[in-house]
Design a protein around this nucleic acid. Structure first.
Length: 808
DNA sequence: AGCACGCCGACT
DNA sequence: GTCGGCGTGCTC
């Protein structure tokens, strides 16, 4: 019988421009019936044929590659981890975001499925080894090599031994996949035997007795940790019971449940307002017609957008389809999660960065196996392998966290629309303050525009006052608090109502400066001042992580007159405690929420009214709904306005509108106090009035005059190098190249050095292309990247960011 | 990324 | 003469 040789196109895990294309491999006979596209494989790559992970993109029989082919070493998966849709999406994304295909493929999988490489040194000839090398092997035949842990001296000796053929270097590809093993406990005695054992116990063996009592009552197996918690006993007791032959302990594979300890209350569909009903009807019609259309659901805070989402999801589920709901990381609060799970139960899968690698993997697997039909998650959830999607929802669509800031620089909104096209289903973009881009598209009829103009029960919007801090700051001893805000807090404390205080920290930090000579402590690697951290008692660089002691003497002039400028949450907390010693204060910022679950626990405590004041950064602005909060204070509304970014007003308006919505959500009337140094700025005045329409009009005018999005598309090209001159040279070369190609209706801003020109000793230069229509631009930029491969050798890197959100 | 090849200077 | 520096090219 004639056998046909199979070949496979593989994308290898070598993230560089040069290797960013499929390579053809021969498929061994033994894999012929197993191999499929979307599987991960191990392949030999490069001259040394080191083993790397790869993704099979295509299996075929007609090979056109002329050179000699290597064989696939091993299949990592029994079945594909990526389906056809994911592979197609990855290809599209790589092309559209100027990213490596391998990076796109990797981001679609949970981290646990990403390859981990280990280097193994194998001893071949043990004679005449140096002392250090012998000590490294320490009688073993092979040893793992971690370059980070081995001294530079030993490393050269090891590599030397390798060159002499005494030692061989192997590359191992491991899976990080880790099914969770849980220890279970089960009694192996009968009730009678247990009773007998209990009688023979010493009188003071209280823990053993507790355990025997439990076992007598419950004969089924139980998880060890749960038993320990329930009976307040330790593993010690269980070990001793095992030794006595009462119980057996054994391992089981378990699902990690991210909402294990959450109390879920069943929720029911709510009565809809007229506007909500109209929205649901319109959406459901397009769900039924399998229309890949985009809706913009614009509704003020408290107008019931979530209920619209939930009813659309219910409609989809009734049709035996699935639903994807994207939420910003920051508003994936327990409140929101409870509401969705309360409605749809165990078919909901959660997907966000707060989960451990194991939990993420388990949720991903549930989705893939079709055991979850609703996915709620942050940005990366847009890639979850749901099949037969009936609706995709993106809440708070204006949120900048939907755009990934590192390779691949995708926007979840674009991916959502791509998938909606693939599945023929509608997308719902929801927001109280839509991005100008989306709102403009709705106006032009590109999106279907749905509005929820009324708050539920016609609750009044809270009264918002702007406080001019230019005057106020002079009056008080505490420059962060105006008298009006202090008075308002005092009243809430007396009435036992709650207060939320927000500190806008974007582009803002507390730094150290010498009063005598003006010296500012900067990072040695980056062009940025170090930030004071009171919890670790150190000065840290937020870009490269550099950390050093807090200076008490000026390093420049030796003066002791050192001051700390800027407002950090820690400093404000200290001031608050002085001002209101009787108040219970909770602080929520990156420092207090780093630990897993800390975020939830702070919010829960506040929700249980265990604190009077919640002080935090932007992260408290969204999604919270506490009826007892009647005062919201924004300490510094305008730090974002000071930034040279055309989106500054938009961000400020969105944030203030958002945070104002936190006050007075129940019966009690809410009050919002915004402290600002720019009380006449239109973004602040219109946020005060909660007038999105007027803000949209004014801002669009400004964008039109300045030639900014949404009137123009933008692309940012960055060149970076260790040597400043090389980076500058490259960006000017790029500029000249682009000038040749661009039409007369397109513009280039720059080239300029970036605002923070040096990060981790690399210098950054950038230019921004503004265009309306440039059909050849994509191809041109790809050619540019292709050509700059040679410079990459010299350490000059080019990155391209389509529609960047940060221009600095 | 990682490895080999090759072309230069400074050493046994 | 050869050892080793790292610029350049290539990986199915």
């Amino acid at each position: 019988m004639l056998r046909i040789t199979q070949y496979a196109e593989v994308i290898v895990d070598v993230p560089t421009m040069q290797t960013n294309r499929p390579y053809t491999y021969k498929v061994k006979k033994e894999f012929e019936n197993e191999i499929d596209s979307g599987m991960r494989v191990v392949v030999p790559f490069g001259r040394g044929s080191r083993l790397v992970q790869g993704f099979v993109m295509r299996v075929f029989t007609q090979n056109s590659f002329e050179g000699s082919l290597k064989e696939i070493t091993a299949l990592i998966d029994f079945e594909p981890v990526l389906n056809t849709e994911s592979l197609e999406l990855a290809k599209w994304m790589a092309r559209n975001t100027f990213s490596f295909a391998i990076s796109c493929l990797q981001t679609m999988l949970p981290g646990a499925l990403r390859a981990k490489y280990q280097k193994e040194l194998v001893l071949i000839d043990g004679r005449e080894l140096s002392k250090e090398v012998s000590a490294f092997f320490n009688t073993r035949k092979s040893q793992f090599l971690d370059e980070q842990k081995v001294s530079a001296d030993l490393l050269t000796k090891l590599l030397d031994a390798r060159k002499k053929g005494k030692v061989k270097l192997n590359y191992l590809v491991n899976d990080r996949l880790l099914p969770k093993k849980v220890i279970f406990v089960k009694s192996i005695l009968s009730k009678e035997q247990l009773e007998a054992a209990k009688k023979n116990l010493r009188a003071n063996a209280a823990n053993l007795k507790k355990m025997l009592d439990y076992l007598i009552r419950h004969s089924q197996e139980v998880q060890q940790t749960i038993l320990e918690k329930k009976l307040k006993i330790t593993a010690q007791t269980l070990h001793s019971a095992e030794k006595r032959g009462w119980i057996k302990r054994f391992e089981k594979v378990a699902r990690r449940n991210p909402v294990e300890n959450m109390e879920i209350v069943k929720t029911h569909p709510r009565e809809l307002t007229v506007a909500q009903k109209e929205a649901v009807t319109a959406i459901n019609a397009d769900i039924d017609n399998e229309n890949a259309i985009t809706f913009l659901l614009e509704g003020v805070t408290g107008s019931g957008k979530t209920e619209v989402y939930l009813q659309a999801i219910a409609h989809v589920l009734a049709k035996k389809k699935t639903a994807l709901m994207l939420v910003p990381e920051i508003s994936l609060t327990p409140q929101m999660v409870k509401r969705v799970i309360g409605r749809f139960g165990t078919q909901v899968a959660l997907f966000h960065s707060g989960l451990s690698a194991g939990e993420r993997f388990d949720e991903w697997r549930r989705i893939k196996e079709g055991k979850a039909s609703v996915v709620v998650g942050a940005r990366s959830a847009v890639f979850t392998p749901l099949e037969n999607i009936g609706v995709i929802i993106m809440d708070e669509e204006h949120e900048s966290s939907y755009k990934q800031e590192k390779m691949p620089r995708y926007h979840a909104r674009d991916v959502a629309k791509w998938r909606a096209d693939y599945h023929n289903c509608p997308v719902i973009l929801g927001s109280a303050t839509p991005s100008l881009e989306s709102r403009a598209r709705a106006q032009k009829g590109v999106y279907r525009w749905l509005k929820l103009p009324q708050r539920i029960n016609n609750r009044p919007l809270p009264a918002v006052s702007l406080i001019d801090m230019r005057q106020e700051a002079k009056k008080t001893r505490f420059p962060d608090f105006s008298q009006s805000l202090l008075d308002a807090i005092t009243v809430r404390l007396e009435k036992k109502e709650q207060t939320i205080l927000m500190l806008n920290r974007r582009g803002y930090s507390s730094f150290m400066m010498c009063r005598d000579c003006g010296y500012v402590l900067n990072c040695p690697n980056c062009d940025i001042s170090l930030t004071l951290h009171l919890d670790t008692h150190s000065m840290k660089c937020h870009y490269c992580g550099h950390e050093e002691k807090i200076p008490y003497i000026c390093p420049a002039c030796g003066s002791k007159q050192i001051r700390y400028y800027g407002t950090g949450t820690q400093k404000v907390e200290k001031e608050l405690r002085q001002l209101f010693p009787q108040a219970r204060i909770l602080r929520m910022d990156v420092d207090t929420t780093r630990r897993k679950g800390a975020h939830e626990s702070i919010l829960r405590r506040f929700g249980e009214r265990k604190a009077d004041i919640l002080l935090g950064t932007q992260m408290i602005a969204k999604g919270l709904d506490y009826p007892e909060v009647t005062l919201v204070g924004v300490l510094n509304a305008d730090t974002a306005l000071g930034m040279a970014d055309f989106r500054a007003s938009e961000r400020t308006f969105q944030l203030l509108t958002q945070v104002s919505g936190r006050a007075g959500r129940a019966q009690k009337e809410g009050k919002v106090i915004i402290q600002t140094y720019n009380p006449n700025h239109y973004a602040l005045l219109l946020a005060q009035k909660q007038d999105y329409e007027e803000f949209f009009n004014q801002e669009m005018n400004i964008r039109h005059r300045g030639g900014y999005p949404p009137y123009f598309f933008t692309i940012q090209v960055t060149a970076s190098a260790l040597d400043e001159g090389n980076a500058a040279k490259k960006i000017f070369e790029t500029y000249t190249e682009l000038k040749k190609v661009l039409g007369r209706n397109s513009f280039i801003l720059g080239p300029t050095p970036k605002a923070i020109m040096r990060i981790n000793n690399r210098y950054y230069y950038q230019l921004i292309i503004k265009y309306k229509k440039e059909p050849k631009l994509n191809a041109c930029l790809h050619a540019l990247l292709q050509k700059s491969q040679r410079d990459e050798r010299a350490g000059v890197m080019i990155t391209i960011d389509k529609e960047p959100l940060n221009f600095i």
